[in-house]
Nucleic acid binder design. Structure first.
Lengths: 237, 237
DNA sequence: GCTTGTCCTGCGGGAACCCGCAGATCGCTG
DNA sequence: CAGCGATCTGCGGGTTCCCGCAGGACAAGC
């Protein structure tokens, strides 16, 4: 049994190494990659079946790396180990996990015990382990709370990229008015409105929405980057 | 001599503790706070003269914490120890450092030696130590490169907050047209334009600009949050 | 003095936005 | 089937944005 660690912080990497060693004595090789790009290459080269990785990495995002790894071997078991439970990350992960794949999502703030438990559960028993807090974010996304639906999230991303209503409409094969309708749903969900009062302190709803999304951690820079890359790919086709 | 460590990651905190101990044997007490908010309180309580802190923290940003610490004791010596050299952070720091204060900015990726050297230089010899890479970002901001001037940065932040041209004008006591002029400078600097070609893939310049700024790390979520808080304060007055 | 450059300001028009109103489609339920 | 709700679509308007053109204020340099 071989385990691949993808993590760009040296301290965390060695900590993970130690945790894997002690949690999985049946593991006979622990490899390390120090960013997402190298992680993809190493995973391919080693035919890794067991991966534990960070999400926020400089060179190449954990989500992107996981996506290509899963594309090549959908049965790879991946344990995400992240600092944050931002909705953007949680949503990003659940967006790329292939059907039936087993994975885990634990926060770096959890105890040694839980990390080791998660390692064993995910890798040996093919059980999905999601931290309580992360679970909460997931729920909020689906439930009737002020979370965003998929349609709303998609339009949020397009708007955050700086696209025009018309452009979004033609990309999504929708009418212009429909796009604007969804935008208004979005504004409502994000609690963004014209500050009806005087001539002071009005908002540009469109940019205000992305500001609020950023502050609520619904969106983050890497989500925008991923979308940008998808956009470029579309354009090339 | 007492040193206060403000860092929310347990691993990094203990690593820093060790580094301080070995770099500064004359230091007789090392305290730790595990986020920005507690850091402010502890610094006040302990009358800390020497602080080493992270920038990216969950509860309260390193920049905000440093601002209040420096406001209370401008001669505090602070060494920032950060993962990133995002322009948003670098600019944020240099925006709050009081005249004549000594501080340092080193990246977490630098070696033990350099970290210890920085600790001694900043704390004992009152010398400012800025990592080479960070220095590079600073230069780019000032120099004739495609970095942003202060005026452009300010308007970028206001736009990112979602304010209207008119609102910005009245807040900044400028004419509407002037604000729009600056916006156009900004668009040029960020290389944002209408994609003149067809009817496809046009941009909404305003939101496109914040997207590009996010991707170039000129802006980040915490910069937006800080601006938002300032905005609310203004409104209250 | 004149010129040159940089910054601020006003005007005007075309485009994009925000949004209310109304009709059309589709799925669901009694 | 009739009725209801949710979603998509078109139209029209008021507002805001993007930007070219043109003038005025001020400093620096020939």
């Amino acid at each position: 049994m071989k385990v691949l660690i993808i993590e760009d912080d040296a301290l965390h990497r060695s900590y993970l190494h130690e945790a894997v060693r002690s949690a999985l004595p049946e593991c006979d090789a622990v490899m390390e990659s120090e960013n997402g790009r190298l992680g993809e290459i190493d995973a391919r080269k080693l035919r890794a079946e067991f991966v534990v990785m960070d999400l926020q990495m400089n060179d190449r995002n954990g989500i992107e790396a996981a996506r290509t790894i899963w594309r090549e071997r959908p049965d790879t078991k991946i344990l995400f180990w992240s600092n944050y439970s931002d909705e953007a990350y949680v949503r990003g992960v659940s967006r790329i996990v292939p059907g039936g794949a087993t994975y885990g999502y634990v926060l770096k703030s959890t105890s040694d015990e839980r990390l080791k438990l998660a390692l064993r559960s995910v890798f040996l028993e093919s059980q999905c382990v999601i931290d309580r807090e992360v679970r909460g974010i997931q729920q909020k996304g689906m439930g009737a709370g002020h979370g965003l639906s998929d349609a709303e999230y998609e339009i949020l991303v397009d708007v955050a990229l700086g696209l025009t209503d018309k452009t979004i409409a033609s990309r999504k094969k929708l009418s212009l008015r429909t796009v604007q309708n969804r935008l208004q749903q979005l504004y409502e969900k994000l609690d963004v409105y014209q500050e009806a009062g005087d001539d002071e302190s009005r908002y540009n709803l469109r940019t205000r929405a992305v500001a609020v999304a950023l502050m609520r951690r619904v969106l983050n820079a890497s989500a925008v980057e991923r979308a940008e890359r998808d956009l470029q790919d579309d354009a090339d086709c």
